[in-house]
């Protein structure tokens, strides 16, 4: 079961992980983009963490606040997409104080769809959408919390490698399409780090 206490735990782990991973994420992002991915995630999570004490028990309201922390602190595409995904999940669990692990797959899919609409990108384009798609599929039908966590983590890790050899198709990385072959996508890698931290294995 995921409730306010579980959310606060995940926020603490994710904020710490993003701070730790920021230099590595900035560096890999800098090869193709503007090199601010680590800064975006760190700043956003710091803002989320500052609101932890007043985090409501209603998970919809709580996740909306998390999303707003990103829309306030970041103008980077990844920050806005992350906020968009959080808002989609917030909408889906609005008015509830907990949800089950069996619902995670559907919530990830909701985030994926909202982010796809916002980013006007296709699946298969070597973006964070492909990580979410893999995670949604891998967790479908599972209800044991540990199994869900493990499946999501593995799916995110495998997606990064599965798309490694493909050229980038969207954003700034698109103009370096050839160079991007053989490189891991920064946004997909960040999602792997995010899910590792959230599931407590960072």
């Amino acid at each position: 079961m995921i409730d306010r206490a579980a959310l606060l735990g995940a926020i603490g782990r994710l904020a710490a992980a993003m701070e730790r991973e920021a230099p590595a994420l900035n560096e890999i992002d800098g090869a193709l983009g503007d090199g601010d991915l680590g800064i975006t995630m760190t700043r956003g999570m710091q803002a989320v963490q500052q609101g932890m004490a007043e985090m409501p028990a209603d998970l919809g309201q709580a996740l909306l606040r998390c999303a707003q922390a990103f829309t306030k602190t970041s103008g980077s595409s990844y920050g806005t997409l992350f906020a968009t995904g959080l808002m989609a999940v917030a909408k889906a669990v609005k008015g509830r104080e907990s949800f089950e692990a069996s619902e995670v797959s559907g919530l990830i899919a909701a985030a994926r769809d909202a982010m796809q609409a916002r980013g006007k990108a296709e699946l298969g384009g070597k973006t964070v959408l492909d990580s979410l798609d893999a995670m949604a599929k891998a967790t479908a039908g599972l209800s044991d919390p540990a199994e869900v966590a493990c499946a999501a983590r593995e799916a995110a890790r495998e997606a990064v490698e599965a798309f490694r050899e493909r050229p980038a198709t969207v954003g700034r990385a698109r103009i370096f399409a050839e160079k991007s072959r053989t490189m891991r996508d920064p946004g997909m890698l960040a999602m792997t780090r995010i899910v590792e931290a959230v599931t407590g294995e960072a």
Binding site: D34, T71, K72, T73, G75, S76, G79, T80, A83
Partner: peptide
């Protein structure tokens, strides 16, 4: 106005 060569946030 965002940082140099970076988009402002949607809130801004």
């Amino acid at each position: 106005i965002g940082d140099v060569f970076a988009s402002p946030s949607s809130e801004q």
